[in-house]
Design a protein around this nucleic acid. Structure first.
Lengths: 300, 300
DNA sequence: TACAATCGGTGCAAAAAATGCATCGGTATC
DNA sequence: GATACCGATGCATTTTTTGCACCGATTGTA
């Protein structure tokens, strides 16, 4: 869009850090670019860049403006998506920020289902921890977030909340699979493989451990849920995950079962979007599909 | 803003209904304007106007685009207001859609208080009935709405709700002022001066009358609350208002008192904004002041 | 201390875009 | 059938944007 050109140029300068570098990226002369920036600042009423000896950096006013630019761009995309929709075109792009647990089974399946009906729609899936996912929504870099136990919940409209009990993951044949119910204290006597503090499962575990006067001393701490699953079979350790990321035990190649609810309360897997934002048609419909799918899981 | 020029022109065409008329309004030639519209449609990817023999009208895509244009404009205003604020300038403009009852005392007082601290801030106050006020918020033509008993409440974030009992207004010395409590049935035996159906007071009265098997047959029906107040003293009639628009009886020059709550439940005076919208700094602060003022009224 | 490498900013001419004018074809209105 | 609008378009003109050459300032380095 021609009339958005100035915004594109501003973004290029922000990215490149200097007018001259940005000029190369945008196939313009430094002088032309320089004058567009100056012209915009004049119209806008305030400078939006700090002039440093080594280049340009956004000042606070510029940061505020960048929010506007991002909103502007995504809202235009929304309108175009809606217009395409009323022309019967069914195209669009959906971007999702999600926890790792959704990657192995849930999301691939849901995306395939959606694309079967709407082959013109493309997806981007970004793995984000709980805090980052929310930032992604706020900066309009994701349309939807599907995360376990998010932190802030301001600026977050919850579309659906699915309770998820924390499951212990252990090698087939482990004594942990034998007891009538699985208690946290039994797990703590094994070697522990835990996700890092950024993750909701770890958070719930820490709280639960503290409340029974224990501390968590993991043998292995990792950001990869895959590694957790695979490691427990290597060294007779116990890991923790939420069931949406796990096959049923008889297919999984390792054992897993929920911890007793009195030890550790279920967390919530939340599907949400940025508060008050009108999503593009495709994202909104996919959101509805996810809600239906999550309702199905809850009913089971 | 230069880069918004195309949007201004589109809006001018929408308002004028034809390119040629819009061209006069915008000091352009019809041909130049025509080509800008065509150019935009080309970039946008779809036509946004229907070409009729007598002029131009927005098509559905155009309607969607107009939403974007309005959001874009007000969000830019918000950014500029925030930038002005961080430059310590304390300027801005606040637009309010409100019920008539707020005009005589409440709003003038609140605006004066605010402007005493922030003389650079200007106001626009638009009298709107309950449905229109909400449309104003949705189209970004007002920042805040202060209305009695709004209709939809979708797209509406309630900042504060003040219960308001319906008061009967009657001439000084009327027998209505004598009874221990004021019953609706007593009022209905007098000549009635009522607001039109668009107003919340009328709505509450209709419901209450129906529930005691009576109907309302007004002598005078009007959209002017002022007229209601002044007419009751002319012909020994009874009118109805909410107290926020009334002086205390001993100063008012006429009598008024609340109707019994068992006859007619209190309505709500709602202060709100459009759902999820980030208001400009000035509007947001004025909103906070109004909340505080309304809390003060509720405590009395 | 001298020098090269950056940086943003500016005067001026060339290139590109927007505009105005004249005019066309079409459609309601009377 | 005359008139009055309407949007669209070719072409000359005006306005805006861009590129080129160059300035002064700052930083890092030999």
């Amino acid at each position: 869009m021609r009339y958005l050109r100035t915004f594109e140029l501003i973004e290029a300068v922000v990215r490149a850090g200097s007018i001259r570098k940005a000029a190369e990226d945008t196939n313009l002369t430094a002088s032309a670019l320089n004058r567009r920036i100056q012209g915009f600042e004049q119209e806008f009423g305030w400078p939006i860049f700090e002039r440093l000896p080594r280049g340009m950096r956004l000042n606070p006013a510029g940061e505020l403006l960048m929010q506007h630019i991002r909103l502007q761009r995504t809202d235009l995309a929304r309108v175009q998506s809606q217009v395409a929709d009323l022309s019967g075109e069914r195209r669009g792009h959906i971007s999702i920020a999600c926890s790792q647990a959704l990657l192995p089974y849930f999301l691939p399946q849901q995306i395939a289902i959606y694309r079967a009906d709407h082959p013109g729609v493309t997806f981007s899936v970004n793995v984000r921890d709980r805090a980052q996912a929310e930032r992604d929504l706020a900066s309009y870099s994701s349309d939807l977030a599907l995360v376990f136990e998010p932190v802030h919940l301001v600026e977050f409209d919850v579309l659906y909340a699915l309770p998820q009990r924390v499951h212990a993951v252990y090698p087939t044949g482990s004594p942990l699979g034998e007891t009538p119910t699985l208690r946290l204290r039994d797990c703590l006597n094994h070697r522990l493989v835990l996700p890092t503090a950024a993750y909701g499962v770890r958070n719930l575990l820490e709280l639960a451990a503290t409340s029974i006067g224990r501390t968590l001393t993991p043998t292995l701490e990792t950001e990869s849920f895959d590694l957790i699953r695979h490691y427990v079979t290597q060294e007779d350790a116990v890991g923790f995950q939420i069931p949406i990321g796990l096959k049923p035990p008889h297919e999984a190649g390792f054992g897993h079962r929920p911890l007793a609810e009195r030890d550790i309360p279920p967390g919530q897997l939340l599907l949400g979007q940025m508060k008050g934002r009108a999503l593009p048609v495709a994202s909104s419909k996919f959101g509805q599909q996810l809600v239906a799918a999550l309702e199905g899981l809850a009913a089971r």
